[in-house]
Simulated assay, not measured.
Amino acid sequence: MPHIDPLPREALPQFEEKFARYDRIRGFLPNSILTMARRPHIAQAFMDLNQAVLYEGTVPEALKMMVALMTSMATGCRYCQGHMANLSHVYEVPDEKIAAIWECETSPHFSDAERAALVLAREAAGVPNTVEAHHFDALKKHFDEAEIVEIVAAIALFGYLNRWNDTMATEMEAHPASVAGRAMPGWEAGKHGVKE
């Protein structure tokens, strides 16, 4: 059960254009944004940053979604895990690859470039952060400096979202819960429940 209920969509007509984009890409509107919207400037800033980080630049969206999923797995935020399993699926990451994210270093499903980004995400999401120079050396073999900024931005964005959703106990929507349950064996919504 969430600590703060999300606002009804109808109460936020100023965001309808952005909300429609969420509907188109994800298939639903996240409760996290409807909760942030109790302070509209926070919701607006978040949606703008989310757009810039995940949907602009030259790093493939599928990789950024997997980086965000790994970040969420490392922090334990089941809400964000469900959402990022869904978005990985939207960007055509196969279920078996989603299921193998945590084992990216040994799984044959990942390229060396993907491994470098995913390992960085895992190490950066830990507390304390355990990123070292060799993680950036591995990235630099596959990505230019601007692309590395994109990857770190995705990790940092989910540092915010993981803290937000785990603290708020944001209620999980049925669609991402369904995808995560299928693509990530053993995944459960935990304190985020599932909105039916």
Rank of each mutant, 00 (worst) to 15 (best):
E123L: 15
M168C: 06
V149W: 11
A116Q: 02
A156N: 09
R24V: 14
E145L: 14
A156Q: 14
Q81W: 07
C80R: 09
T35I: 15
W102A: 10
A121Q: 09
L49C: 08
R78P: 00
E171Y: 00
L54Q: 10
L118H: 07
M70R: 01
M1E: 10
H83R: 00
M47D: 11
P185C: 14
Q51P: 00
K195N: 08
K140Y: 14
S88R: 05
H109D: 12
I42Q: 08
G82N: 05
V119F: 08
P6I: 15
W164Q: 14
A121Y: 02
Y79R: 03
P128R: 11
H83T: 05
N129K: 12
D166I: 14
V53T: 09
V152T: 13
A52S: 03
I148N: 12
M84W: 06
P176L: 11
R21P: 02
G27P: 03
V90S: 06
E132K: 15
H41A: 10
R38A: 05
H83S: 07
M47W: 00
R122F: 06
H175N: 05
G126F: 00
V59L: 03
I101D: 10
F46T: 02
E96M: 10
E10C: 06
G82H: 01
A124R: 09
H83W: 01
S107Q: 04
K97V: 11
R9M: 08
H41G: 05
L63F: 08
R39W: 12
V194H: 15
T35D: 05
C77M: 12
Y91S: 00
R24T: 14
M70T: 01
R78L: 05
G181V: 00
G181W: 09
A138H: 12
T35P: 03
W164G: 03
I25L: 15
L139V: 13
H3Y: 08
V179H: 09
C80E: 14
G193P: 07
E103G: 03
E17Y: 03
S72C: 07
H134R: 13
E150P: 07
T167P: 09
G126T: 00
M84Y: 13
E173A: 06
D137Q: 03
Y55H: 09
L34T: 02
T130Y: 06
S32Y: 04
R21M: 08
V152D: 03
E103H: 02
D5Q: 08
Q14L: 04
T71E: 15
Y55R: 11
H41R: 12
G27D: 00
